[in-house]
Write a protein that binds this DNA or RNA. Structure first.
Lengths: 216, 216
DNA sequence: ATGTATTTGATAATCATTCGCAAGTCAAGG
DNA sequence: CCTTGACTTGCGAATGATTATCAAATACAT
């Protein structure tokens, strides 16, 4: 005897919206889409219902690496790949149909679930990566904090800042440049030292006049 | 040319403390232990160094299901089980030595990593579960919100509250009773309706005189 | 229709983790 | 031994994702 579950309008829309998505959206992404149909929904409602629906087995909550959880309209058992660059998650079919079992109750555990998860670069990010020939930039990133001229990476960051209408955080810069958040903060520090970037508020950055000259 | 890595005292202690732990501690657990040796360390330092050390490949960051990340002194490739009840994480050895591969670049992805993760009940929680014969309590939990007498689960929660010297949150109650957080909040609501529990502050609960009578 | 358990919206709270900053350290080169 | 500049640390405040609270609104069996 399961707990009673009402089919409210918002519940319906949430389920419907998830089912029509080919990707595995986060609660937040789903919320943005649902707002278009139900402008008054609360983010909490989306979270609540995703939780309830996955408890009821109608959908599945994916706890892939990373911060945000994603949701899958298909509650059946299957595995995933995620892109370490853009965080996208896709289904994947294993070559060996038999996953693998282990001596039941290994170490005294009673096993009730298993999860297999691959990671790598999705086609899109792969292409992007190849055209950018990253060179040894990454390891050198922090060493370049004091050189007077800006590196390619720093130029990228500066350009992103120049294009932003207002001060933005490192997350946005990471998204705009396609660089890792790690790198961003390091580059920001370097750029601040050079006087090309200013921080009007904590965690917010903007390009200085001096910085614009570098780009120009 | 890797980035220059200093071996500071705190770095040393953090690495040492992780290496001597048989389990896979969270940053927070590690912090608690390290504080005993270095009373002035900052939690941020622990996080920072765990991140740096795992980037350097000296340790490994585990992104197991759940909120907190855990750390493994063994950076070699191996798989894990975690207890869905107490969150403990252990190593596990697979029966089939060859996990499984899939047609490289499936769906256009360039695969660079894979993770296999089992879940279940650890020996300790298994025993605890068996002695408690949970019955159908769980499904009925919310339906019982209005019955006048308290359920076994509610009694458990009340006892935990009675034992607490001050008002406590649902997380603590979950820990004290071994129940799911979900259930706790439901039971708290029921107990508040009955007048056995009061909430002196948001998210904090305490037992009322009336509640104590029920227990007595 | 009606009573009532469930659900919603809005918002505050939580928790794990990260960031900014100023002060402190370290190692190599004078 | 003393500089120097990159690396680190402690601290507190900020972030981001998710969850909880609570009064008001709903949906459903009867």
């Amino acid at each position: 005897m399961d707990r009673y579950l009402r089919m409210t309008h918002q519940r319906e829309v949430i389920l419907d919206e998830l089912r029509r998505s080919k990707t595995h959206p986060t609660a937040d992404e789903l919320y943005e889409r649902i707002k278009k149909k139900l402008p008054r929904v609360s983010l909490a409602t989306v979270y609540r219902n995703l939780e309830i629906l996955s408890e009821a087995g109608l959908i599945k909550k994916l706890e892939i690496s990373g911060r945000q959880k994603r949701f899958d309209w298909d509650p059946g058992e299957h595995d995933h790949v995620y892109c370490i660059h853009c965080q996208r998650v896709d289904n994947i079919t294993l070559a060996a149909p038999a996953p693998e079992v282990e001596p039941m109750r290994q170490q005294g555990y009673r096993i009730t679930g298993r999860r297999i998860e691959f990671s790598g670069l999705c086609p899109k990010c792969l292409r992007q990566q190849e055209t950018k020939k990253t060179k040894g930039e990454r390891a050198m990133a922090c060493a370049s904090c004091t050189t007077s001229k800006v590196s390619d990476t720093q130029r990228q960051v500066l350009e992103a800042l120049a294009n932003s209408p207002e001060a933005c955080g490192s997350k946005e810069l990471a998204a705009a440049t396609g660089l890792e958040a790690k790198q961003i903060s390091c580059q920001i520090t370097a750029l601040k030292n050079k006087g090309y970037v200013a921080s009007p508020a904590r965690c917010k950055y903007e390009i200085t006049e001096q910085g614009k000259n570098v780009l120009g």
